[in-house]
């Protein structure tokens, strides 16, 4: 066989499979979003009615607000904490290998099961502590409070998310030569100046990747919520993924939730592009 034919013989099946299992379902989803299909039985075209309804739907609106609030806060908190830990792990410390292993541990664990464990902590352990301390706020399950439940989910997401991002930052930090810092020290630069003038510019590409990847992951939050609140109390922690799953199947709103999914997709693409643009420009400016 000719070389080019071999490459084609490899690429074409990959393309075909990917199209069949990824693109084709996506196209189907778009198609059904213009119908009134329940997921079974007969259907009719309804034009853009589903889309108009998504924009008028308070429940969907609330899910978008919750999901974004959660994703933005978690992304920021995860990145701050993991940057701090990475800097810590990169300095001259004892037990570096062990500590690094511990901080990376959450990455290998199932989010769902961690969620179940934290669910117990919030329902039984923290109230026990709160009662001992006499704190009114802590003595109740924060997952039962619609204003605080999302924080519980952020805590779990951060607990797990820090692991991977720390590693990424660490990968960036080890490439910075010690000499740079020493030169800066001779010039009389403080810790703060060193961070902004040396550390941060050097790890900026990692910062970009972390921000984009974290944001995208947290916009799809599902496992943590299923394990901890099931979307409650009320609908205060219902994420878009959960809404599509629940509404799409249980509510018999297959077509409607498909429209919701398409809107969601457009939103994610726009955000990713904006993020990349802004972060790249900042990087270039540095």
């Amino acid at each position: 066989m000719k070389k080019n034919h071999v490459f084609m013989a490899i690429a074409l099946p990959a393309l075909a499979l990917f199209f069949i299992f990824h693109t084709y379902p996506a196209l189907q989803g778009i198609f059904y979003s213009f119908t009134d299909w329940k997921g079974y039985g007969s259907w009719n075209f309804v034009g853009v009615k589903n889309y108009l309804n998504v924009f008028k739907d308070n429940r969907a609106g609330a899910a978008y607000i919750f999901t974004f609030q959660f994703a933005i806060v978690t992304t920021i908190v995860v990145n701050i904490i993991s940057l701090l830990i990475a800097i810590g792990l990169n300095s001259k410390i004892k037990f570096r290998k062990t500590l690094r292993a511990i901080y990376f541990l959450p990455y290998i664990l199932s989010i769902l099961i961690i969620g179940f464990i934290f669910n117990f902590i919030f329902a039984h352990f923290l109230p026990q502590i709160g009662t001992v301390l006499g704190s009114e706020l802590l003595s109740k399950n924060i997952l039962g409070n619609p204003d605080l439940a999302w924080i519980g989910i952020v805590i779990v997401a951060v607990w797990q998310g820090v692991a991977f991002n720390t590693l990424l930052y660490l990968a960036g930090l080890v490439t910075i030569s010690e000499d740079l810092y020493e030169a800066a020290s001779i010039d009389g630069a403080g810790i703060w100046t060193k961070f902004w003038k040396i550390t941060f510019p050097m790890i900026a590409p990692f910062f970009t990747i972390n921000m984009v990847l974290s944001m995208k992951n947290y916009l799809m939050v599902f496992d943590q919520i299923v394990a901890m609140t099931g979307g409650g109390p009320g609908k205060s922690t219902e994420s878009i993924s959960l809404l599509i799953y629940r509404g799409g199947f249980e509510g018999g709103q297959f077509a409607y939730q498909s429209a919701n999914a398409v809107v969601y997709f457009v939103v994610i693409v726009i955000i990713s592009i904006i993020q990349l643009k802004i972060l790249n420009r900042r990087e270039a400016a540095n």
Binding site: A26, Q28, Y32, K216, A261, F265
Partner: peptide, 14 residues
């Protein structure tokens, strides 16, 4: 960049 929930419903059927 395509979130899984978008292909979830049709994929389950398919």
């Amino acid at each position: 960049f395509i979130p899984f929930p978008i292909i979830m419903l049709p994929l389950v059927k398919q």
